[in-house]
Nucleic acid binder design. Structure first.
Lengths: 352, 352
DNA sequence: AGCGGCCGCTAACACGATTTAGCAACCGGC
DNA sequence: GCCGGTTGCTAAATCGTGTTAGCGGCCGCT
């Protein structure tokens, strides 16, 4: 079988000291507690020679901290985006020597509760509670036990939890500015939401906020939105249908698609109508989904910074853990992570 | 602060019995060790009333099993596929009340070693060592300590580890059969690899095995491959280039693309040449990437069963853990998970 | 000589569970 | 009345670590 792990007792024995002394030296408190240099050296050498590594389970037992955090999300498999978020969280955790439990609730309260309990039973130091698309959520009661952060989600009711979300309003503004900068003033249509602020699929934050940002910039510039079409879901087929229907009535100069999958559908409809992107119609979108660089021409889009969101959430979580340890009140503000514009080939000046 | 957790001592005190008795009852060994029915009931009631849940860290300390496994992969963020694999693993783990650590090595040996050590230090019960695309890998020494399974990877040298991989050869056969069944005999071209068995991008298992399967079926049917083009990487742009170049020379009747991203590029090139899928050219592919259903017409493809691979890996891992516990030798066979054909709209009978 | 103080280390307990060994009480048989 | 066996429970050890309290020895001062 596998050879028994080297324990601190082994190290102490090998160095000819008590286990206490070994513990003191190895936890760096030797100097403070007046362990002689020679003993200290003997212990360190013994530890190195035996390749001693502390057993974290035992440490957790004693100290109460497991150097482990939980990452709970509704789903991990929707897209590459989810993976990026986890990747960011993973990096930030690794820098602190912390491991990540992951779990998915599939949106079911039972699974959610079970998962949170399983993590608490394993004494996680904190929990990142993530949603794969931005929305407001009812905060589970179990989340108030351990330090926690909401990721890509806002609490439905005021609660003492910090949250990390993408800055969708500013993203909307950025998308509108891309078109204005290229010289567009007329024939700007929306695909997926709008034109009015109430025309959004239910339950999404991204819809309202992106639309708010777009309208804000266009309004200020005195530019009127030519039209818009709300889609129940933001899949390619809906983008195709909305755009095809639009093309029957009029000829747009620019499309703002509310995400890249809609934009893919819009491309297909434009192609079917013999219109060229960007010469005939400019397209700007949101998300920076992998397909944005696969379709032709490559899509100009405002990126969801999933990687950065994941990192930031873990950073905020550890700040929160520190606050708790110091007995301070939790920080319930929400962080807005900027969404960068990826300028590619789908936007051009309108034809004269 | 957060209220102290309810411990077994609390339960025992509340029921008026010793901690030992409480433990016996709660671990279901009460009957066996002749605890009276009345005491048993008192303990169970106390546990329920106090909402007692055992502390898994303490249990781990005593029993050596953490009900936690590690999922180590080179990367988790390449695509939705990775997410699906994790999702499958997660499901299988949840069914056993087991949590999942995840970590990524980014292919760096240092990170890999650190990660495996971190997991061992947390006494994981076993490790799934996954690759995001099928390949042969050198098995890290640290993997032999705990029970482990290779997922989507084959050991470079014989070693006592089971592995779980997709059945790529049979997938190749299935793809070829799709074309034969539709009546194709001539003008079958390969995109991404081939036509000879050596024409594959280096380091991939999928390339050789898919090609092997394709050739196997076509050879048996007496059908000759009209041509092929190996691509250094399997991205849309390579599929586009290979197909565009092919179209300059001749007019294919069917394309076997070695993955869906290549197929996307091929679609674009065919579209550019004014050829219709599937009327002019049939296309069959591999992976069942999300875009397969987004592009028009929807792509017929042989699916990588990522979800199933993840599940299977965890199942095999637990079988392995059981073997070890019973002192039997490890099972070093490799499992082949079938790759199902997704028949959609990109294959039709050749034009008369 | 007696006493206080420092130096360098160790004994012992705690964390929360599991498990082994054993104790007290009762019963029956001779 | 003593012995042996069964019943029903508990004391105590254990896992590997962190931490507090304290012990013996030496030095210096009066």
């Amino acid at each position: 079988m596998s050879p028994r792990r080297v324990t601190m007792t082994d190290v102490a024995k090998h160095a000819g000291v008590s286990r206490t002394t070994a513990s003191l030296v190895l936890s760096g408190r030797g100097r403070e507690l007046r362990i002689s240099q020679s003993v200290e050296r003997r212990v360190l050498e013994a530890a190195q020679e035996l390749e001693y590594r502390p057993d974290i389970v035992s440490q957790s037992m004693r100290t109460g901290t497991t150097r482990t955090i939980g990452f709970v999300s509704d789903t991990v498999a929707t897209s590459r985006l989810a993976g990026d978020m986890i990747k960011g969280a993973l990096e930030a955790a690794r820098e602190r020597g912390v491991m990540l439990f992951i779990g998915e609730t599939e949106g079911e309260p039972d699974l959610e509760r079970g998962l949170l309990e399983a993590m608490q039973d394993r004494r996680v130091d904190g929990i990142v509670f993530a949603s794969m698309f931005t929305r407001t959520i009812p905060v589970p009661a179990a989340l108030t036990t351990a330090p926690a952060v909401l990721l890509n989600a806002l609490p439905a009711e005021p609660c003492p939890l910090p949250s990390v979300v993408p800055d969708e309003i500013e993203a909307g503004r950025a998308a509108a500015r891309v078109l204005l900068d290229a010289g567009h003033r007329d024939g700007i249509h929306l695909v997926g939401a709008g034109p009015d602020i109430d025309d959004v699929p239910p339950g999404t934050v991204a819809g309202v906020e992106r639309l708010t940002g777009i309208r804000d910039v266009l309004d200020r510039a005195g530019v009127e939105i030519a039209g818009g079409r709300v889609c129940p879901d933001w899949q390619p087929e809906h983008g195709y249908a909305a755009t095809a229907e639009l093309l029957e009535r009029e000829r747009p100069r620019a499309l703002v698609c509310l995400n890249d999958r809609l934009a893919l559908g819009a491309y297909q409809a434009l192609d079917g109508a013999g219109l060229k992107v960007p010469d005939d119609v400019s397209v700007v979108s949101f998300d920076d989904h992998p397909i944005a660089t696969w379709i032709r021409p490559k899509l100009t889009t405002v990126a969801l910074p999933h990687h950065e969101l994941g990192r930031e959430a873990v950073d905020v979580l550890f700040a929160e853990i520190d606050r708790r340890r110091e007995g301070r009140d939790p920080d319930s503000r929400s962080r807005r992570v900027p969404m960068p514009v990826r300028r590619r080939d789908s936007v051009a000046a309108p034809r004269a």
